[in-house]
C-alpha cells in the first residue's frame, strides 16, 4: 500500500532526485546522500541535532516527512564549507570553543546562520530565544553565546 515515490529537490545547490517512501524522514533522506551532519538524537524535534534548512527555514529533520521536500531547496551544514573555507559562524565556534562532543554542533551552526540572517546584531535575549530549541548536553552554552556574538561582529 505504501508507495515509494520519486521526488526532485535542490540539495546544497545541486538538483537531485531519489525514490523515497512516505514514512521516511528528512534525516534518512539526507543519509542517502552521505550527509551525516544532521543527526537524529531525541527524535522529537527538541534537541536540534537534526536541523536542516528547507526553503530558507530551519526545520527538525527527524519530524519532517522526506516527501515534503519535493520541489523544495534543502541546505545542510555541509554546504557552508563547500568551497573549502569555513563560514564566519563556523570559525567563531572554533575560536570560542563552542562545543565539546560536537554532536549537536551542526544544528547550532545552521541555526546561528539563520539567526544572523534575521537579526544581524542579536541581543543576548535574541540569541537565547532563538537557540533555546537546540540543546547541548555538554553544556557549551556560554561559549556558544560568545561565538554567536563574535560571528555577528564578523558579519557572519
Amino acid at each position: 500500500m505504501s508507495v515509494a515515490r520519486t521526488i526532485h529537490f535542490t540539495l546544497n545547490g545541486r538538483k537531485v532526485s531519489t525514490e523515497i517512501e512516505p514514512h521516511h524522514n528528512l534525516v534518512e533522506l539526507l543519509q542517502r546522500f552521505d550527509l551525516f551532519g544532521a543527526r537524529e538524537s531525541c527524535g522529537q524535534g527538541l534537541c536540534g541535532c537534526c536541523t536542516a534548512v528547507v526553503d530558507g527555514q530551519p526545520v527538525s529533520g527527524c519530524l519532517y516527512f522526506a516527501v515534503m521536500v519535493d520541489g523544495k531547496s534543502v541546505t545542510t551544514v555541509e554546504a557552508f564549507d563547500a568551497d573549502g573555507a569555513l563560514s564566519k559562524v563556523q570559525q567563531a565556534f572554533i575560536d570560542h570553543g563552542a562545543f565539546q562532543c560536537g554532536f549537536c554542533t551542526p544544528g547550532f551552526v545552521l541555526m546561528t546562520h539563520q539567526l544572523l540572517q534575521d537579526k544581524p546584531n542579536p541581543s543576548d535575549d535574541d540569541i537565547r530565544d532563538y537557540l533555546s530549541g537546540n540543546l547541548c548536553r555538554c553544556a557549551a552554552y556560554p561559549e556558544i553565546i560568545a561565538a554567536v556574538k563574535a560571528a555577528a561582529r564578523a558579519g557572519r
Binding site: G48, Q57, V59, D129, S132, G133
Partner: peptide, 12 residues
Amino acid sequence: LPRLSNVRVRNV
C-alpha cells in the same frame, strides 16, 4: 510566539 516550542517547530 517566541517562546512557543522552538523556531524549527514554528517554521513547520
